[in-house]
């Protein structure tokens, strides 16, 4: 579905933002992209929707080289939600913001209103239908940016820091929506620093550091690998930390496992 072959990119000579990146993301995957500030995450995802073109190497999306396609052509297929929602929001009202892409893709009016209603409901924005986007709270703006992309239903979804400004209830709602879409066959990439969100909801991880892919694997495996995490300025999720502090034989990011191990330890020390 998404293939990076030996991709390099630099904004200024002598300093690579991406360096010889190889990455193969199959069909219906749900993947987190992790890495330190400046690691190249945003640069990487901008290559998938064609905003950036590799200076060397090749990026192909569903078999097509992004060099031969425009951002406009890729947009229908690849939905990118920007890290800063204010780069994306421009319409006069929440409703118009959501309808914009749909109208652009020439959807019939009843389809447009059905999808706009769906998106407002899904992201708890219905009460703000007629409000200008800049008059929303930070978290609400982020949800509007997410909603405006999700409502046109692209096959590939790329979300750059989707959980910023979200409380834990909103994160759970977002995660279950992403799981559902992924279950319906969509590819979902989540760029994030939110280790708890990854540990709780995202099965697969790609780790970037200094422009290179340094690890790929299951979240359970990578998030309990302390050396690897430290190498990319990441900290283990709390349950991994707790596993170590409790000296559990097999560190885990699963709440139930930690609770059951902890209650055995409590029982043991009381005897």
């Amino acid at each position: 579905m998404i293939l990076f072959e030996d991709v390099s990119y630099s904004y200024s000579p002598g300093r690579y933002a991406l360096e010889h990146v190889n990455l193969d993301i199959g069909g219906a995957e749900l993947v987190a992209i992790l890495g330190e500030n400046g690691a190249g995450k945003t640069t990487l995802v901008k290559h998938i929707n064609g905003l950036l073109k590799p200076q060397s190497g090749r990026v192909t999306v569903s078999g097509a080289d992004t060099k031969n396609s425009t951002v406009a052509a890729l947009a229908r297929k690849v939905g990118l939600v920007f890290q800063n929602p204010d780069h994306q929001l421009f319409a006069e009202t929440v409703e118009k913001e959501l309808a914009f892409a749909l109208v652009n893709f020439a959807m019939p009016p009843d389809e447009v209103s059905r999808r706009v209603d769906w998106a407002m409901k899904e992201f708890e924005l219905t009460q703000y239908r007629d409000r200008p986007p800049f008059m929303l709270s930070g978290g609400e703006r982020k949800r509007l940016a997410l909603a405006s992309v999700l409502c046109y239903d692209p096959q590939i979804l790329i979300l750059d820091e989707p959980t910023t400004g979200q409380d834990s209830r909103q994160k759970i709602r977002l995660a279950s929506l992403l799981k559902r879409l992924n279950g319906e066959g969509k590819t979902v990439l989540v760029v994030t620093h939110d280790m708890e969100f990854v540990a709780d909801f995202i099965p697969k991880v790609v780790m970037l550091s200094k422009g290179r892919v340094i690890a790929e694997g299951s979240a359970e495996e990578i998030l309990t690998n302390r050396e690897l995490l430290m190498g990319a300025s990441l900290l283990p999720p709390q349950l991994a930390e707790l596993s170590w502090d409790l000296a559990l034989q097999r560190p885990t990011i699963d709440l139930e496992q930690v609770v059951s191990a902890a209650s055995k330890l409590v029982g043991g020390s009381q005897r």
């Binding site: 409380d167 999720p237 709390q238 707790l242 609770v259 209650s263």
Partner: peptide, 16 residues
Amino acid sequence: RMGIGIPKAVKVAKRL
């Protein structure tokens, strides 16, 4: 009940 981000250590402690 509010859906704020309770730390995992607190969640585990509450379960115990």
